[in-house]
Simulated scan of single mutants.
Amino acid sequence: MDSFKKIHLLSQELIPLINDLEEEPKQIILEHIKDCGDCRKLHESAVEFDESMPKQDFSEGVELKPLKKLVQFNTGLKLLLVTVRALILFYIFYSSFSYYGESAPLLMGQFYSGIILFYVPAAIFLLVFTFTFFNKKWFWTSLVADLVIIFLLDNIVELFL
């Protein structure tokens, strides 16, 4: 394959991107366009296509408002995550304190085992969900809240007994 054919093949591939090329390759392609009719037609059609596209004026700082439905959906998901945690804690409180007649150490043991058995797996799932779909601030807030619940809630409840 001679050098003209090589330049011809490369020019056909690069003509649509000619404005993005560096100066030296751009000049080589423009010189080839002067000699080759096929590449000249391709370049003209690419220029016509670029000119037919509407131009956007990005000089002004346009602020894009988030879609209202998307914000509502995001808020609803956050509320759902908080509600699931609250329902699990309510179940643990209710099931533990329904046997209130027992001694306090047994009650607290049942309460802490309920946290480990029910809350920890749910918290792990909800944290993975939060990490995947929400920002880091919401993830870290959820993680700190879950750690406080797992490690300190039984001590706080024991203070009120």
Rank of each mutant, 00 (worst) to 15 (best):
residue 81 L to R: 07
residue 103 S to D: 15
residue 131 F to Q: 07
residue 130 T to D: 03
residue 112 Y to F: 12
residue 135 N to M: 03
residue 102 E to W: 01
residue 114 G to S: 03
residue 148 V to H: 07
residue 113 S to E: 14
residue 81 L to F: 10
residue 135 N to D: 14
residue 132 T to N: 10
residue 141 T to E: 15
residue 105 P to E: 03
residue 112 Y to V: 08
residue 119 Y to P: 01
residue 138 W to F: 15
residue 92 I to K: 00
residue 146 D to Q: 10
residue 139 F to L: 14
residue 85 R to Q: 09
residue 99 Y to H: 15
residue 125 F to I: 14
residue 121 P to M: 11
residue 122 A to V: 14
residue 85 R to L: 05
residue 107 L to S: 02
residue 144 V to Q: 11
residue 116 I to T: 12
residue 109 G to T: 08
residue 119 Y to T: 04
residue 115 I to S: 03
residue 119 Y to H: 05
residue 118 F to C: 13
residue 149 I to C: 14
residue 122 A to I: 10
residue 128 V to I: 10
residue 88 I to D: 00
residue 127 L to R: 01
residue 96 S to I: 03
residue 116 I to A: 13
residue 96 S to Y: 00
residue 137 K to M: 07
residue 117 L to W: 05
residue 133 F to D: 05
residue 132 T to V: 13
residue 104 A to D: 12
residue 148 V to F: 13
residue 99 Y to E: 13
residue 121 P to C: 10
residue 137 K to R: 12
residue 81 L to M: 14
residue 80 L to E: 10
residue 132 T to A: 15
residue 92 I to C: 01
residue 93 F to P: 02
residue 149 I to R: 03
residue 123 A to V: 05
residue 106 L to W: 02
residue 84 V to I: 12
residue 105 P to G: 05
residue 81 L to D: 07
residue 82 V to A: 09
residue 102 E to Q: 11
residue 127 L to Y: 02
residue 126 L to V: 04
residue 137 K to T: 08
residue 86 A to W: 01
residue 104 A to V: 15
residue 139 F to M: 11
residue 121 P to A: 11
residue 113 S to R: 12
residue 84 V to C: 06
residue 136 K to Q: 13
residue 99 Y to C: 09
residue 128 V to W: 09
residue 93 F to C: 07
residue 107 L to Q: 02
residue 89 L to W: 01
residue 106 L to I: 09
residue 118 F to Y: 15
residue 86 A to K: 05
residue 120 V to W: 03
residue 81 L to H: 05
residue 89 L to D: 03
